[in-house]
Design a protein around this nucleic acid. Structure first.
Lengths: 223, 223
DNA sequence: GATACTATTTAGAATAATCTAAAAAAAATA
DNA sequence: TATTTTTTTTAGATTATTCTAAATAGTATC
Protein backbone atom coordinates (compact mmCIF):
# COMPACT_ATOMS: atom_id res chain seq x y z
CA UNK A 1 0.00 0.00 0.00
CA UNK A 2 2.34 2.74 -1.13
CA UNK A 3 0.42 4.08 -4.16
CA UNK A 4 0.01 7.63 -3.04
CA UNK A 5 3.06 8.15 -0.94
CA UNK A 6 2.51 6.89 2.58
CA UNK A 7 1.46 3.50 3.84
CA UNK A 8 -1.38 2.99 6.31
CA UNK A 9 1.19 2.36 9.01
CA UNK A 10 3.17 5.47 8.20
CA UNK A 11 0.00 7.56 8.19
CA UNK A 12 -0.87 6.24 11.63
CA UNK A 13 2.55 7.13 13.00
CA UNK A 14 2.34 10.62 11.48
CA UNK A 15 -1.07 11.09 13.06
CA UNK A 16 0.26 9.95 16.43
CA UNK A 17 3.28 12.24 16.33
CA UNK A 18 1.05 15.14 15.33
CA UNK A 19 -1.42 14.34 18.08
CA UNK A 20 1.05 13.98 20.93
CA UNK A 21 3.34 16.75 19.75
CA UNK A 22 0.49 19.24 19.37
CA UNK A 23 -0.88 18.50 22.82
CA UNK A 24 2.00 19.88 24.84
CA UNK A 25 4.28 21.33 22.19
CA UNK A 26 7.23 19.29 23.44
CA UNK A 27 8.94 16.63 21.29
CA UNK A 28 7.31 13.22 21.62
CA UNK A 29 9.35 10.52 23.32
CA UNK A 30 9.87 7.12 21.76
CA UNK A 31 8.10 5.44 24.66
CA UNK A 32 5.08 7.72 24.51
CA UNK A 33 4.74 6.92 20.85
CA UNK A 34 5.19 3.20 21.44
CA UNK A 35 2.43 3.42 24.00
CA UNK A 36 0.10 5.30 21.67
CA UNK A 37 0.80 2.93 18.79
CA UNK A 38 0.61 -0.21 20.87
CA UNK A 39 4.03 -1.36 19.78
CA UNK A 40 7.62 -1.51 21.02
CA UNK A 41 10.13 1.28 21.44
CA UNK A 42 12.41 -0.48 18.96
CA UNK A 43 9.79 -0.37 16.23
CA UNK A 44 9.15 3.29 16.91
CA UNK A 45 12.84 4.05 16.71
CA UNK A 46 13.06 2.43 13.30
CA UNK A 47 9.97 4.19 12.03
CA UNK A 48 11.05 7.62 13.26
CA UNK A 49 14.28 7.23 11.36
CA UNK A 50 12.32 6.53 8.21
CA UNK A 51 9.76 9.30 8.72
CA UNK A 52 12.60 11.73 9.39
CA UNK A 53 14.20 10.82 6.07
CA UNK A 54 10.86 11.41 4.41
CA UNK A 55 10.76 14.85 6.04
CA UNK A 56 7.46 14.43 7.81
CA UNK A 57 8.91 14.56 11.32
CA UNK A 58 11.90 16.23 12.92
CA UNK A 59 13.86 13.65 14.84
CA UNK A 60 17.10 13.52 16.76
CA UNK A 61 18.33 10.40 18.46
CA UNK A 62 17.42 10.34 22.14
CA UNK A 63 15.67 13.70 21.79
CA UNK A 64 12.24 12.66 20.59
CA UNK A 65 10.25 13.68 17.52
CA UNK A 66 8.07 16.56 16.46
CA UNK A 67 5.85 17.06 13.47
CA UNK A 68 7.14 18.92 10.38
CA UNK A 69 4.98 21.21 8.21
CA UNK A 70 4.76 18.43 5.63
CA UNK A 71 3.84 15.94 8.33
CA UNK A 72 1.20 18.26 9.72
CA UNK A 73 -0.38 18.54 6.31
CA UNK A 74 -0.63 14.77 6.02
CA UNK A 75 -1.90 14.36 9.57
CA UNK A 76 -4.64 16.93 9.03
CA UNK A 77 -5.74 15.27 5.81
CA UNK A 78 -6.09 11.94 7.60
CA UNK A 79 -7.89 13.57 10.52
CA UNK A 80 -10.23 15.34 8.11
CA UNK A 81 -11.11 12.03 6.50
CA UNK A 82 -11.52 10.29 9.85
CA UNK A 83 -13.94 12.90 11.15
CA UNK A 84 -15.96 13.19 7.95
CA UNK A 85 -16.45 9.44 7.93
CA UNK A 86 -17.54 9.58 11.55
CA UNK A 87 -20.18 12.13 10.64
CA UNK A 88 -21.33 9.88 7.82
CA UNK A 89 -21.55 6.85 10.08
CA UNK A 90 -23.53 8.65 12.76
CA UNK A 91 -25.71 10.96 10.67
CA UNK A 92 -26.44 8.65 7.76
CA UNK A 93 -25.87 5.08 8.92
CA UNK A 94 -27.25 5.54 12.44
CA UNK A 95 -24.15 4.41 14.24
CA UNK A 96 -23.74 5.42 17.86
CA UNK A 97 -20.99 7.83 18.90
CA UNK A 98 -19.05 5.03 20.48
CA UNK A 99 -19.23 2.61 17.57
CA UNK A 100 -17.58 4.73 14.93
CA UNK A 101 -13.94 4.99 15.88
CA UNK A 102 -12.71 1.58 14.77
CA UNK A 103 -14.37 1.79 11.38
CA UNK A 104 -13.23 5.37 10.83
CA UNK A 105 -9.67 4.22 11.60
CA UNK A 106 -9.93 2.09 8.49
CA UNK A 107 -11.84 4.51 6.28
CA UNK A 108 -9.43 7.38 6.98
CA UNK A 109 -6.79 5.69 4.81
CA UNK A 110 -8.84 5.48 1.63
CA UNK A 111 -7.08 7.51 -1.02
CA UNK A 112 -9.37 9.58 -3.20
CA UNK A 113 -9.55 13.37 -3.04
CA UNK A 114 -12.76 13.29 -5.09
CA UNK A 115 -14.39 10.89 -2.65
CA UNK A 116 -13.65 13.16 0.29
CA UNK A 117 -14.77 16.36 -1.36
CA UNK A 118 -18.00 14.68 -2.47
CA UNK A 119 -18.54 13.19 0.96
CA UNK A 120 -18.01 16.60 2.54
CA UNK A 121 -20.57 18.11 0.19
CA UNK A 122 -23.00 15.21 0.75
CA UNK A 123 -22.83 15.71 4.51
CA UNK A 124 -23.43 19.45 4.17
CA UNK A 125 -19.89 20.60 5.00
CA UNK A 126 -20.01 19.71 8.69
CA UNK A 127 -17.65 21.65 10.95
CA UNK A 128 -17.60 19.17 13.82
CA UNK A 129 -17.56 15.41 14.13
CA UNK A 130 -19.97 13.52 16.41
CA UNK A 131 -17.56 13.92 19.32
CA UNK A 132 -17.50 17.68 18.84
CA UNK A 133 -14.00 17.74 17.39
CA UNK A 134 -13.51 20.22 14.55
CA UNK A 135 -13.12 18.95 10.99
CA UNK A 136 -10.22 20.52 9.07
CA UNK A 137 -11.07 21.85 5.60
CA UNK A 138 -9.09 20.95 2.44
CA UNK A 139 -6.41 23.41 3.43
CA UNK A 140 -6.08 22.07 6.95
CA UNK A 141 -7.84 24.99 8.62
CA UNK A 142 -10.35 24.35 11.34
CA UNK A 143 -12.20 26.45 13.85
CA UNK A 144 -10.66 25.75 17.18
CA UNK A 145 -13.55 25.88 19.54
CA UNK A 146 -13.22 25.15 23.17
CA UNK A 147 -15.47 22.22 23.89
CA UNK A 148 -16.53 22.19 27.53
CA UNK A 149 -19.16 20.48 29.62
CA UNK A 150 -22.29 22.51 30.16
CA UNK A 151 -21.59 22.27 33.89
CA UNK A 152 -18.74 24.79 33.71
CA UNK A 153 -20.49 27.40 31.57
CA UNK A 154 -21.06 30.65 33.42
CA UNK A 155 -24.50 31.98 34.19
CA UNK A 156 -25.73 34.25 31.43
CA UNK A 157 -23.54 32.70 28.72
CA UNK A 158 -24.99 31.37 25.49
CA UNK A 159 -23.68 28.21 23.91
CA UNK A 160 -24.41 25.42 21.48
CA UNK A 161 -24.45 21.68 22.09
CA UNK A 162 -21.78 20.15 19.88
CA UNK A 163 -21.31 16.71 21.36
CA UNK A 164 -21.98 14.34 24.24
CA UNK A 165 -19.57 12.42 26.39
CA UNK A 166 -22.03 9.65 27.16
CA UNK A 167 -23.72 7.89 24.28
CA UNK A 168 -25.81 5.44 26.27
CA UNK A 169 -29.33 4.88 25.09
CA UNK A 170 -30.59 6.10 28.45
CA UNK A 171 -28.86 9.45 28.06
CA UNK A 172 -29.97 9.85 24.49
CA UNK A 173 -33.57 9.19 25.50
CA UNK A 174 -33.24 11.72 28.29
CA UNK A 175 -31.97 14.35 25.86
CA UNK A 176 -34.73 13.56 23.43
CA UNK A 177 -37.35 14.06 26.11
CA UNK A 178 -35.77 17.36 27.09
CA UNK A 179 -35.74 18.53 23.49
CA UNK A 180 -31.97 18.72 23.32
CA UNK A 181 -29.82 17.45 20.46
CA UNK A 182 -26.55 18.20 18.73
CA UNK A 183 -26.78 21.76 17.46
CA UNK A 184 -29.24 22.97 20.08
CA UNK A 185 -28.52 26.55 21.14
CA UNK A 186 -29.14 27.52 24.73
CA UNK A 187 -28.38 30.06 27.47
CA UNK A 188 -27.50 29.24 31.04
CA UNK A 189 -29.99 31.03 33.28
CA UNK A 190 -29.05 29.79 36.70
CA UNK A 191 -27.18 27.17 38.63
CA UNK A 192 -28.76 25.62 41.68
CA UNK A 193 -26.28 25.37 44.51
CA UNK A 194 -28.54 22.86 46.18
CA UNK A 195 -28.09 19.91 43.80
CA UNK A 196 -25.90 21.28 41.01
CA UNK A 197 -28.71 21.25 38.50
CA UNK A 198 -28.73 23.93 35.84
CA UNK A 199 -31.55 26.02 34.44
CA UNK A 200 -31.26 26.66 30.75
CA UNK A 201 -33.23 28.53 28.16
CA UNK A 202 -33.69 26.89 24.78
CA UNK A 203 -34.15 28.36 21.32
CA UNK A 204 -37.92 28.19 21.57
CA UNK A 205 -37.60 30.24 24.76
CA UNK A 206 -38.66 27.30 26.87
CA UNK A 207 -36.84 27.06 30.17
CA UNK A 208 -35.86 23.68 31.55
CA UNK A 209 -33.63 22.30 34.25
CA UNK A 210 -31.02 19.65 33.58
CA UNK A 211 -29.41 17.40 36.14
CA UNK A 212 -25.74 17.80 37.12
CA UNK A 213 -25.02 14.41 35.59
CA UNK A 214 -26.48 15.56 32.28
CA UNK A 215 -24.63 18.88 32.44
CA UNK A 216 -21.41 16.94 32.89
CA UNK A 217 -22.00 14.96 29.70
CA UNK A 218 -23.33 17.70 27.48
CA UNK A 219 -20.42 19.27 25.63
CA UNK A 220 -20.97 22.78 24.40
CA UNK A 221 -19.16 25.53 22.54
CA UNK A 222 -19.58 28.94 24.09
CA UNK A 223 -20.10 31.82 21.70
CA UNK B 1 -3.44 -5.95 7.95
CA UNK B 2 -4.27 -9.42 9.18
CA UNK B 3 -6.86 -8.57 11.86
CA UNK B 4 -9.79 -10.40 10.45
CA UNK B 5 -8.09 -13.24 8.67
CA UNK B 6 -7.03 -12.20 5.20
CA UNK B 7 -4.86 -9.35 4.02
CA UNK B 8 -5.89 -6.95 1.29
CA UNK B 9 -3.53 -8.72 -1.07
CA UNK B 10 -4.89 -12.15 -0.23
CA UNK B 11 -8.46 -10.93 -0.69
CA UNK B 12 -7.57 -9.62 -4.13
CA UNK B 13 -6.06 -12.94 -5.16
CA UNK B 14 -9.09 -14.82 -3.88
CA UNK B 15 -11.36 -12.50 -5.83
CA UNK B 16 -9.29 -13.02 -8.97
CA UNK B 17 -9.29 -16.81 -8.67
CA UNK B 18 -13.04 -16.78 -8.10
CA UNK B 19 -13.60 -14.48 -11.02
CA UNK B 20 -11.51 -16.35 -13.58
CA UNK B 21 -12.43 -19.79 -12.32
CA UNK B 22 -16.16 -19.06 -12.39
CA UNK B 23 -16.02 -17.70 -15.92
CA UNK B 24 -15.15 -20.90 -17.70
CA UNK B 25 -15.20 -23.47 -14.91
CA UNK B 26 -11.67 -24.60 -15.72
CA UNK B 27 -8.78 -24.21 -13.26
CA UNK B 28 -7.04 -20.85 -13.56
CA UNK B 29 -3.50 -20.88 -14.89
CA UNK B 30 -0.68 -19.14 -13.09
CA UNK B 31 -0.11 -16.86 -16.04
CA UNK B 32 -3.75 -15.88 -16.35
CA UNK B 33 -3.72 -14.92 -12.71
CA UNK B 34 -0.45 -13.03 -13.06
CA UNK B 35 -2.03 -11.12 -15.90
CA UNK B 36 -5.17 -10.31 -13.92
CA UNK B 37 -3.18 -9.27 -10.86
CA UNK B 38 -0.60 -7.29 -12.81
CA UNK B 39 2.26 -9.23 -11.28
CA UNK B 40 4.69 -12.03 -12.14
CA UNK B 41 4.05 -15.74 -12.41
CA UNK B 42 6.56 -16.33 -9.62
CA UNK B 43 4.59 -14.19 -7.19
CA UNK B 44 1.38 -15.96 -8.13
CA UNK B 45 3.01 -19.33 -7.58
CA UNK B 46 4.03 -18.35 -4.08
CA UNK B 47 0.65 -16.94 -3.25
CA UNK B 48 -1.27 -19.93 -4.55
CA UNK B 49 0.77 -22.16 -2.29
CA UNK B 50 -0.20 -20.02 0.67
CA UNK B 51 -3.88 -19.74 -0.26
CA UNK B 52 -4.00 -23.48 -0.78
CA UNK B 53 -2.68 -24.03 2.74
CA UNK B 54 -5.36 -21.66 4.01
CA UNK B 55 -7.94 -23.79 2.19
CA UNK B 56 -9.40 -21.00 0.10
CA UNK B 57 -8.24 -22.40 -3.24
CA UNK B 58 -7.58 -25.85 -4.59
CA UNK B 59 -4.15 -25.93 -6.15
CA UNK B 60 -1.86 -28.51 -7.70
CA UNK B 61 1.54 -27.63 -9.10
CA UNK B 62 1.44 -27.05 -12.83
CA UNK B 63 -2.31 -27.75 -12.89
CA UNK B 64 -3.72 -24.35 -11.99
CA UNK B 65 -6.06 -23.25 -9.21
CA UNK B 66 -9.78 -23.25 -8.55
CA UNK B 67 -11.83 -21.63 -5.83
CA UNK B 68 -12.87 -23.63 -2.74
CA UNK B 69 -16.22 -23.21 -0.93
CA UNK B 70 -14.45 -21.21 1.77
CA UNK B 71 -12.75 -19.10 -0.89
CA UNK B 72 -16.02 -18.50 -2.68
CA UNK B 73 -17.57 -17.25 0.52
CA UNK B 74 -14.77 -14.75 1.01
CA UNK B 75 -14.83 -13.67 -2.63
CA UNK B 76 -18.57 -13.05 -2.54
CA UNK B 77 -18.28 -11.00 0.64
CA UNK B 78 -15.68 -8.79 -0.99
CA UNK B 79 -17.71 -8.52 -4.18
CA UNK B 80 -20.79 -7.61 -2.15
CA UNK B 81 -18.89 -4.81 -0.46
CA UNK B 82 -17.39 -3.62 -3.72
CA UNK B 83 -20.76 -3.36 -5.44
CA UNK B 84 -22.59 -1.79 -2.50
CA UNK B 85 -19.93 0.91 -2.33
CA UNK B 86 -20.29 1.48 -6.06
CA UNK B 87 -24.00 2.05 -5.58
CA UNK B 88 -23.23 4.48 -2.79
CA UNK B 89 -20.73 6.39 -4.89
CA UNK B 90 -23.05 6.71 -7.87
CA UNK B 91 -26.42 7.12 -6.16
CA UNK B 92 -25.37 9.28 -3.23
CA UNK B 93 -22.09 10.94 -4.12
CA UNK B 94 -22.89 11.54 -7.80
CA UNK B 95 -19.90 9.70 -9.17
CA UNK B 96 -20.06 8.56 -12.78
CA UNK B 97 -20.16 4.86 -13.61
CA UNK B 98 -16.60 4.96 -14.82
CA UNK B 99 -15.14 6.76 -11.81
CA UNK B 100 -16.11 4.29 -9.12
CA UNK B 101 -14.02 1.21 -9.69
CA UNK B 102 -10.71 2.41 -8.27
CA UNK B 103 -12.25 3.77 -5.10
CA UNK B 104 -14.44 0.69 -4.62
CA UNK B 105 -11.30 -1.43 -4.93
CA UNK B 106 -10.12 0.24 -1.76
CA UNK B 107 -13.43 0.38 0.09
CA UNK B 108 -14.15 -3.31 -0.49
CA UNK B 109 -11.46 -4.24 2.03
CA UNK B 110 -12.89 -2.32 4.97
CA UNK B 111 -13.73 -4.81 7.69
CA UNK B 112 -16.99 -4.16 9.50
CA UNK B 113 -20.07 -6.33 9.11
CA UNK B 114 -22.18 -3.65 10.78
CA UNK B 115 -21.00 -1.04 8.31
CA UNK B 116 -22.01 -3.16 5.36
CA UNK B 117 -25.41 -4.15 6.69
CA UNK B 118 -26.15 -0.51 7.52
CA UNK B 119 -24.93 0.64 4.15
CA UNK B 120 -27.11 -1.96 2.44
CA UNK B 121 -30.12 -0.73 4.40
CA UNK B 122 -29.24 2.93 3.75
CA UNK B 123 -29.11 2.28 0.02
CA UNK B 124 -32.44 0.46 0.07
CA UNK B 125 -31.12 -3.07 -0.42
CA UNK B 126 -30.10 -2.61 -4.04
CA UNK B 127 -29.95 -5.79 -6.15
CA UNK B 128 -27.62 -4.46 -8.85
CA UNK B 129 -24.61 -2.22 -8.94
CA UNK B 130 -24.32 0.71 -11.36
CA UNK B 131 -22.85 -1.58 -14.01
CA UNK B 132 -25.83 -3.92 -13.74
CA UNK B 133 -23.93 -6.63 -11.91
CA UNK B 134 -25.90 -8.39 -9.17
CA UNK B 135 -25.06 -7.72 -5.52
CA UNK B 136 -24.77 -10.86 -3.39
CA UNK B 137 -26.72 -10.82 -0.11
CA UNK B 138 -25.15 -11.66 3.29
CA UNK B 139 -25.37 -15.35 2.45
CA UNK B 140 -23.73 -14.94 -0.93
CA UNK B 141 -26.90 -15.45 -2.94
CA UNK B 142 -27.63 -13.22 -5.87
CA UNK B 143 -30.12 -13.19 -8.68
CA UNK B 144 -28.26 -14.12 -11.81
CA UNK B 145 -29.86 -12.03 -14.47
CA UNK B 146 -28.66 -12.03 -17.99
CA UNK B 147 -27.59 -8.53 -18.79
CA UNK B 148 -27.74 -7.92 -22.53
CA UNK B 149 -27.69 -4.91 -24.83
CA UNK B 150 -31.10 -3.68 -25.89
CA UNK B 151 -30.00 -4.33 -29.45
CA UNK B 152 -30.32 -8.09 -29.08
CA UNK B 153 -33.72 -8.16 -27.36
CA UNK B 154 -36.40 -9.78 -29.48
CA UNK B 155 -39.42 -7.90 -30.76
CA UNK B 156 -42.31 -8.13 -28.32
CA UNK B 157 -40.11 -8.78 -25.27
CA UNK B 158 -40.32 -6.62 -22.17
CA UNK B 159 -37.22 -5.66 -20.22
CA UNK B 160 -35.74 -3.23 -17.74
CA UNK B 161 -32.73 -0.96 -18.12
CA UNK B 162 -30.21 -2.02 -15.48
CA UNK B 163 -27.02 -0.40 -16.68
CA UNK B 164 -25.20 1.39 -19.46
CA UNK B 165 -21.96 0.51 -21.18
CA UNK B 166 -21.12 4.09 -22.06
CA UNK B 167 -21.13 6.67 -19.32
CA UNK B 168 -20.15 9.68 -21.38
CA UNK B 169 -21.96 12.89 -20.61
CA UNK B 170 -23.22 12.93 -24.19
CA UNK B 171 -24.91 9.57 -23.81
CA UNK B 172 -26.36 10.43 -20.42
CA UNK B 173 -27.83 13.63 -21.85
CA UNK B 174 -29.30 11.65 -24.71
CA UNK B 175 -30.93 9.21 -22.33
CA UNK B 176 -32.28 12.02 -20.23
CA UNK B 177 -33.87 13.62 -23.25
CA UNK B 178 -35.42 10.31 -24.23
CA UNK B 179 -36.79 9.80 -20.73
CA UNK B 180 -34.72 6.71 -20.10
CA UNK B 181 -32.79 5.94 -16.92
CA UNK B 182 -31.66 2.99 -14.83
CA UNK B 183 -34.79 1.11 -13.83
CA UNK B 184 -36.86 2.17 -16.81
CA UNK B 185 -39.15 -0.63 -18.02
CA UNK B 186 -39.84 -0.95 -21.69
CA UNK B 187 -41.05 -3.24 -24.45
CA UNK B 188 -39.42 -3.67 -27.84
CA UNK B 189 -42.02 -2.91 -30.48
CA UNK B 190 -40.09 -3.13 -33.69
CA UNK B 191 -36.64 -3.14 -35.20
CA UNK B 192 -35.97 -1.13 -38.34
CA UNK B 193 -33.94 -3.12 -40.82
CA UNK B 194 -33.08 0.10 -42.59
CA UNK B 195 -30.77 1.67 -39.96
CA UNK B 196 -30.89 -0.74 -37.02
CA UNK B 197 -32.87 1.66 -34.87
CA UNK B 198 -35.36 0.20 -32.42
CA UNK B 199 -38.88 1.27 -31.53
CA UNK B 200 -39.66 0.88 -27.87
CA UNK B 201 -42.64 1.46 -25.66
CA UNK B 202 -42.04 3.06 -22.28
CA UNK B 203 -43.91 2.75 -19.00
CA UNK B 204 -46.00 5.82 -19.74
CA UNK B 205 -47.04 4.12 -22.97
CA UNK B 206 -45.06 6.60 -24.99
CA UNK B 207 -43.36 5.12 -28.03
CA UNK B 208 -39.93 6.29 -29.04
CA UNK B 209 -37.16 5.20 -31.36
CA UNK B 210 -33.60 4.78 -30.20
CA UNK B 211 -30.53 4.69 -32.39
CA UNK B 212 -28.55 1.48 -32.91
CA UNK B 213 -25.63 3.05 -31.10
CA UNK B 214 -27.81 3.70 -28.07
CA UNK B 215 -29.34 0.22 -28.20
CA UNK B 216 -25.82 -1.18 -28.11
CA UNK B 217 -24.99 0.69 -24.92
CA UNK B 218 -28.25 0.22 -23.06
CA UNK B 219 -27.97 -2.93 -20.95
CA UNK B 220 -31.25 -4.54 -20.03
CA UNK B 221 -32.59 -7.53 -18.13
CA UNK B 222 -35.35 -9.37 -19.93
CA UNK B 223 -38.26 -10.55 -17.86
C1' DG C 1 9.60 -40.28 -29.74
C1' DA C 2 13.23 -36.63 -29.66
C1' DT C 3 13.57 -31.77 -29.81
C1' DA C 4 12.01 -27.15 -29.16
C1' DC C 5 9.14 -24.00 -26.98
C1' DT C 6 6.22 -22.34 -23.31
C1' DA C 7 4.48 -22.37 -18.71
C1' DT C 8 5.49 -22.89 -14.07
C1' DT C 9 8.10 -23.40 -10.07
C1' DT C 10 12.16 -22.74 -7.12
C1' DA C 11 16.18 -20.20 -5.41
C1' DG C 12 17.88 -16.19 -3.75
C1' DA C 13 17.36 -11.42 -2.79
C1' DA C 14 14.83 -6.94 -1.69
C1' DT C 15 11.55 -3.91 1.02
C1' DA C 16 8.30 -3.00 4.79
C1' DA C 17 7.09 -3.66 9.35
C1' DT C 18 7.70 -5.97 13.35
C1' DC C 19 9.97 -8.29 17.47
C1' DT C 20 13.53 -9.77 21.33
C1' DA C 21 17.70 -9.14 23.42
C1' DA C 22 21.82 -6.56 24.04
C1' DA C 23 24.28 -2.17 24.00
C1' DA C 24 24.48 2.71 24.68
C1' DA C 25 22.85 7.14 26.23
C1' DA C 26 20.30 10.04 29.36
C1' DA C 27 18.22 10.89 33.68
C1' DA C 28 17.70 10.12 38.51
C1' DT C 29 19.59 9.28 42.90
C1' DA C 30 22.57 8.85 46.51
C1' DT D 1 30.27 13.09 41.05
C1' DA D 2 29.58 8.08 40.93
C1' DT D 3 26.18 4.77 40.53
C1' DT D 4 21.82 3.03 39.46
C1' DT D 5 17.73 3.13 36.75
C1' DT D 6 15.24 4.25 32.78
C1' DT D 7 14.97 5.24 28.05
C1' DT D 8 16.41 4.67 23.59
C1' DT D 9 18.90 2.66 19.97
C1' DT D 10 21.12 -1.08 17.46
C1' DA D 11 21.76 -5.89 16.05
C1' DG D 12 19.86 -9.80 14.37
C1' DA D 13 15.60 -12.41 13.22
C1' DT D 14 10.89 -13.06 11.39
C1' DT D 15 6.74 -12.62 8.33
C1' DA D 16 4.51 -10.87 4.11
C1' DT D 17 4.98 -9.68 -0.46
C1' DT D 18 7.40 -9.01 -4.42
C1' DC D 19 11.04 -9.55 -7.94
C1' DT D 20 14.81 -11.62 -11.32
C1' DA D 21 17.07 -15.41 -12.94
C1' DA D 22 17.67 -20.24 -13.17
C1' DA D 23 15.72 -24.82 -13.17
C1' DT D 24 12.06 -27.93 -14.28
C1' DA D 25 7.64 -29.66 -16.09
C1' DG D 26 4.40 -29.83 -19.78
C1' DT D 27 3.09 -29.17 -24.57
C1' DA D 28 3.81 -28.90 -29.38
C1' DT D 29 6.31 -30.06 -33.54
C1' DC D 30 8.79 -32.58 -36.75
Amino acid sequence: MIENGFSFVEENYIKAVYHLNTQDGKPVSTNALADEMQTTAASVSDMLKKLSQKKVVFYQKYKGASISPKGKEIALKVIRKHRLWEVFLVDQLKFNWDEVHEVAEQLEHIKSPLLISRLDEFLGYPKYDPHGDPIPDEDGNFAQVKKEPLSVVEIGSSCQVIAVDDSSTAFLKYLDKMGISIGTKLRVEDKNEFDGSIDINLENDKSITVSPRAAENLLVATD
